[in-house]
Simulated assay, not measured.
Amino acid sequence: MGLGAGWTQETTGTEVAKAFKDDIKSKTILITGVSPISLGESTALAIARHGPAKLILASRTESKLQQVADNIVKMNPNIKAELIVVDLSSQADIRTAARRVYALTNRLDILVNNAAVVTSARSETLEGIELQFGTNHIGHHLLTSLLTPLLLAGAKASGEPGTTRIVNVSSMGYRLSPIRFHDYSFEGKPVPPEEEPPKGIPAHMKPDVAAGRPYYGFTAYGQSKTANILHAVALKERLSSKGVQAFAVHPGSIWTNLSRNLSDDDRKIIEGTSTFWKNQDQGCATTLAAAFDPDLCDAKEAYLSDCRLHDVAEYAKDQPIAERLWQLTEKLTEGKANL
């Protein structure tokens, strides 16, 4: 039984980080989606408390990054976080940000792909991809591919296989949709039954082309969160033999600024989805367990909830589906993981 044997939905990131404080001290860590009142901030604060070798924070707005950096200094004056401004809905911006990371470090030990967007209205990335899929999955896939040489360098330097990790912050919301390979951008194209939302999802919470509703925000969000899990499955297949582990996590039900782009009706729907709402500190616990728990070094599963490994639906763990998504993503990023 490892350190996490007694962890529950109430476990805090502060507790998890303290349990692995000796591991944190040696690590170079990059976290995306860091802004005030976010899981990115709570994750960064929990880690910073224990003096990592280098802490790199990435997000879209410099002023918000600086607010979190200032909060870190107040808590631990010995930590100076490096800040990277990046818009994950722009592939050009991601490449520029990756170059900046290379200028800061020659290795990465932990990459936390935490940033996300959820919206009720359809929008697109600069490349014309539906925004939630394009940002939450495509953006992080490209960033991870660009930074993989640094992760491999971290794994080689550590000499401890499986302690170098990629953590994708997903969601139990993955249950709302598999990958819609025939209409991933929600342009109203027909999709086969296996790409429709699973049975049990209310009709009013599904896209319906015939009814003039080709887009539904939560279906698009669900697809992007399924993609986060499948990305971890594919990364595990490609990198575990090279010493790099990959996981996707459900942080729990938490109110953050992520919901700022939702309609009032969609906010009401979210309010009824959970009987236990985590605070910010509890919300980052599973991310930190995925990043540092030594019991996970040889884990074959890719998904965690409440700091423990959990099973997921077949469409979110099937290796051929993960490979198909990988190939689609490579096509949408021009198959180039070069700076």
Rank of each mutant, 00 (worst) to 15 (best):
T105G: 07
N106Q: 14
R107G: 08
L108P: 03
L111I: 01
V112H: 01
V112R: 01
N113K: 08
A116P: 00
V118M: 14
V118I: 15
T119V: 15
S120Y: 09
S120P: 10
S120E: 11
A121E: 14
R122E: 06
R122F: 03
R122K: 15
S123K: 15
S123V: 08
E124T: 15
E124Q: 15
E124N: 14
T125F: 02
L126T: 13
L126A: 14
E127V: 02
E127L: 05
E127T: 09
G128E: 03
E130G: 08
L131C: 09
L131P: 01
Q132N: 13
F133V: 05
G134P: 03
G134K: 00
G134T: 03
N136Y: 04
I138L: 15
H140F: 05
H141N: 11
H141I: 11
H141K: 12
H141G: 07
H141Q: 12
L142N: 09
T144W: 03
T144D: 07
S145T: 08
L147V: 08
T148Q: 10
P149E: 10
L150V: 06
L151Y: 05
L152S: 13
L152G: 11
A153P: 01
A153R: 11
G154W: 01
G154Q: 12
K156R: 14
A157K: 14
A157I: 03
S158N: 13
S158W: 10
G159E: 06
G159I: 01
P161H: 10
